[in-house]
Design a protein around this nucleic acid. Structure first.
Length: 218
DNA sequence: GCGACAG
DNA sequence: ATCTTGTCGC
C-alpha cells in the first residue's frame, strides 16, 4: 500500500505517477478469486460533486454480494493522463467503506495503457495494494488494429513495439472495450476475467452495476 | 503548428 | 462525465 496526498499540483501529480511506477506488479499475484469488485463514479449534472460506488460480486457466479458508496467534492480538473487525481480520492473512500474486500477490482479507466504507463487502474492498485484491471470505454493511448466482430475477438494495443493492453469485444457486433493491466494481474488473466464478468452486456457486470447505482444516488 | 485526448 | 425517449437493427 502506497498512500500519498491527492491535493497536489499538475507537476506534482506527474512526479507521483513516476514515483509509483517501480511498484507495479505485472504478473498474477493473488490466490483464488472469489470476489470481483467494480468501481465507477457518476457526476452531478451541475456542480462539483460526484458519487463513487464499488460493487462486489461473487466470482465466477456473478451474484452481487455487497457494495459501498462515497459522495464528495471533485477537486481536480479532468486532464487526460491525470484521471486518478480526479476520481482516486472518492474511490479510496468508497473502498474503505467496503465490508467485503474484493480479491480483484475492475476500474473504469485505463491501467498500463497510459502515456506514462500508470493510468487510474494501476495507480489505485498500487495505492490500495489490491489486484486491479483497467476497463475503459474509449481509447487514450497506443495503437491497435480493429478486432474481429465477435465476442472474445481482440487486438493488442502497442506502444513502442510493446503490448500495453488489448481492445476486447465483449459482445458480438458491439463496440469493444479497452482492457489493460492494473496491478498484480497479467494481461492474459485480465482479458479472461473481463470476459467471465460480462455475460450479456458490453460492460463487465461489477462496473455496469456500479455505474447504475452511482448515478441513481448522485 | 496541428490533432488527439480515459471520465 | 452530462443534457435525453423512442426507435431502428441484430
Amino acid at each position: 500500500m502506497v498512500k500519498h496526498p491527492w491535493n497536489v499540483t499538475i507537476d506534482e501529480a506527474c512526479t507521483i505517477q513516476n514515483s509509483l511506477k517501480d511498484r507495479i506488479i505485472t504478473y498474477d499475484a493473488f490466490d483464488i478469486i472469489k470476489h470481483v469488485g467494480g468501481a465507477d463514479v457518476a457526476y452531478e449534472v451541475s456542480g462539483n460533486r460526484a458519487c463513487c460506488v464499488i460493487t462486489v460480486f461473487s466470482y465466477p457466479s456473478l451474484e452481487i454480494m455487497s457494495c459501498s458508496c462515497f459522495c464528495g467534492d471533485i477537486c481536480f480538473a479532468y486532464i487526460p493522463g491525470l484521471f486518478a487525481f480526479r476520481e482516486g480520492p472518492l474511490i479510496e473512500k468508497a473502498f474503505e467503506g467496503l465490508d467485503v474486500i474484493p480479491d480483484l477490482l475492475l476500474i473504469d479507466g485505463h491501467g498500463l495503457c497510459h502515456p506514462r504507463g500508470i493510468g487510474i487502474a494501476t495507480h489505485m492498485g498500487v495505492f490500495l495494494d489490491v489486484p486491479t484491471i483497467g476497463c475503459a470505454k474509449n481509447h487514450l493511448f497506443g495503437s491497435h488494429r480493429e478486432p474481429g466482430s465477435l465476442r472474445g475477438d481482440r487486438a493488442c494495443i502497442y506502444s513502442e513495439r510493446k503490448t500495453i493492453g488489448c481492445v476486447l469485444r465483449t459482445r458480438d457486433n458491439i463496440k469493444p472495450v479497452f482492457i489493460s493491466q492494473g496491478h498484480r494481474v497479467s494481461l492474459k488473466t485480465s482479458v479472461e476475467i473481463c470476459l467471465n464478468c460480462s455475460k450479456g452486456y458490453r460492460i463487465p457486470e461489477p462496473l455496469r452495476m456500479a455505474h447504475i447505482l452511482a448515478r441513481r444516488i448522485i
